[in-house]
């Protein structure tokens, strides 16, 4: 008993914190899988949210506080709400199989699975390629640089190097907003 306790306490527990990231990572994967597989749309959306939250926690656990908080703020606060509202405002009957525009493309179940798997593999390969071959990603893997005031660094980058894309995105979003407002207005008049 005594020996067991001594051996237990002598394990390298101080190494444990660097494995903490496993919890949010596994949670994220499980939630994402559940989001794909569950039948109830709202449950899917909630699971997706859980996976967003886990991703944010993962960012924070890896030291990227700013990105983690922005992830929570934008995805949990805004995107999820958008998804949930979209689901609630769409009558469930409209999503019936008879209305499915892709119905003619539906093949056998096995073929579907193969096609889906292929698409997933392609996306994964693209992501991996982007991560491993992008010069920005290479540069970002620098803990010393990331640790010093990440928020300030992101701000500097946004407003110096990537100002033009930022402004372009802003104009695009504003145009989308105006378009949405116009569509809503049209609907009201008729």
């Amino acid at each position: 008993m005594h020996d067991l306790f001594q051996r237990l306490i002598s394990l390298p527990w101080d190494q444990a914190p660097q494995w903490f990231f496993l919890f949010p990572a596994l949670l994220m994967l499980l939630a994402a899988a559940a989001a794909v597989m569950l039948r109830n749309l709202i449950h899917c959306a909630l699971c997706l949210t859980l996976s967003f939250i886990a991703l944010g926690v993962l960012f924070i656990a890896l030291g990227a506080e700013f990105v983690g908080f922005v992830q929570l703020l934008v995805y949990v606060g805004a995107v999820t709400m958008l998804i949930l509202f979209a689901i609630l405002l769409t009558p469930a009957s409209e999503v019936a199989a008879s209305n499915n525009p892709f119905r003619s493309f539906q093949l056998s179940k096995a073929l579907n699975a193969v096609a889906g798997g292929a698409v997933a593999m392609l996306v994964l390969a693209g992501l991996l390629a982007a991560i491993f071959f992008s010069p920005h990603a290479q540069a970002a893997v620098n803990p010393a640089k990331a640790a010093t005031a990440p928020a300030a660094a992101i701000g500097e980058n946004l407003l110096n190097h990537t100002l033009l894309p930022l402004q372009g995105t802003a104009i695009l979003l504003t145009a989308a907003l105006i378009g949405a407002a116009l569509l809503a207005k049209e609907d009201k008049r008729s």
Partner: peptide, 13 residues
């Protein structure tokens, strides 16, 4: 260092 952001990120929950 990003405490204000933390606050609003949690508020989204």
């Amino acid at each position: 260092s990003a405490g204000i952001l933390y606050f609003f990120a949690l508020g989204a929950g």
